[in-house]
């Protein structure tokens, strides 16, 4: 039973860097700036309700789009030859090796009113045609500094976290099980609906978790791609700790509420997932 001690460094690590900060957040959330115990931080949060709506709304949109793109991608990849799969996986992972800010700056210059896309479109005379057809008079599409751009940033940054778990679950489905379904009379579409998709749900659930959580708490994206017009929770919390609105107590309270909402959402989702295949996601 000596082996137990091998876990000691990990336990210490968890205690110092996971449990202690969590306790600190809770303590901060329930105390005022003068150190007294209070619920003011929560009752004052009303003004920030829009930030909650925006954050959760955009994160849900990004997650849905990631499923719509990521699932078919993962599914078709899993049926490809080994070589194709390896190359494709590399390409999907590649952006993750680059700095997050760098990737986001790149998108800024792509989406800008004078950015890559608009320059390309006007160089091929696209807007002339567009204006002639729709009777408008535009010289560019306005894409940067919109909520759409924020969602795009989230999708671009977190899509790999959707593709990888779905891919690895589909890839592990025993081909014999699929053959068994065909053998019993299921057509290809029925095999997918009744066997492959239900069996891949655990992958979708973990993909959703891995995309949704970073999306809902993301910061900088809104400032860089959304032009700072949409206040998101990540930015709001950052402001309370580092910005001029300095109030770590309020920041902690917001973080705590966000965490509780996310936990509740995940719990509900796992409950749905359990009906299909009892694999925990969190």
């Amino acid at each position: 039973m000596k082996n137990k001690w091998l876990a000691a460094p990990y336990v210490v690590w968890m205690a110092i860097f996971v449990v202690a900060p969590l306790i600190l957040v809770v303590v901060f959330a329930f105390t005022g700036q003068d150190g007294s115990v209070t619920l003011d931080n929560f009752s004052n949060m009303g003004t920030y309700v829009p930030a909650f709506w925006h954050s959760f709304g955009l994160a849900i949109a990004a997650t849905l789009i990631c499923i719509l793109i990521g699932y078919p991608l993962a599914y078709f990849l899993s049926r490809e030859k080994l070589m194709v799969r390896k190359v494709a996986m590399m390409l999907i992972m590649l952006p993750m090796w680059m700095n997050f800010l760098l990737r986001t700056y790149a998108w800024m210059s792509i989406l800008d009113d004078n950015g890559l896309i608009n320059q390309f479109l006007s160089s091929i005379g696209f807007f002339n045609v567009w204006n002639a057809i729709f009777g408008t008079n535009i010289q560019f599409f306005h894409m940067i500094n919109t909520q759409g751009a924020i969602v795009l940033g989230m999708v671009y940054n977190f899509l790999p976290f959707m593709v990888l778990p779905i891919f690895s679950v589909i890839d592990k489905i025993d081909p014999k099980v699929i053959e068994a379904a065909q053998d019993l009379g299921a057509s290809s579409s029925m095999v997918f609906r009744k066997v492959i998709f239900p069996l891949s749900l655990p992958g979708v659930l973990s993909g959703v978790t891995m995309v949704f959580i970073p999306s809902v708490s993301t910061f900088a994206l809104s400032r860089l791609l959304g032009g700072g017009k949409t206040l998101l929770l990540g930015d709001l919390i950052e402001m309370q700790f580092l910005g001029n609105a300095y109030n770590p107590h309020l920041g902690s309270a917001i973080a705590l509420v966000m965490m509780v909402i996310v936990l509740v959402m995940m719990a509900i989702m796992n409950r749905f997932g359990e009906g299909e295949e009892g694999v925990a996601v969190l």
Binding site: D174, K176, E179, A180, A181, D183, L184, G185, L199
Partner: peptide, 20 residues
């Protein structure tokens, strides 16, 4: 004729049951 249209059914070696 594809498998799903044959009047033949198979018992697979490792059962291949639907675990879900």
């Amino acid at each position: 004729v594809p498998p799903h249209k044959r009047k033949v059914n198979t018992v697979f070696q490792k059962y291949a049951l639907f675990t879900h």
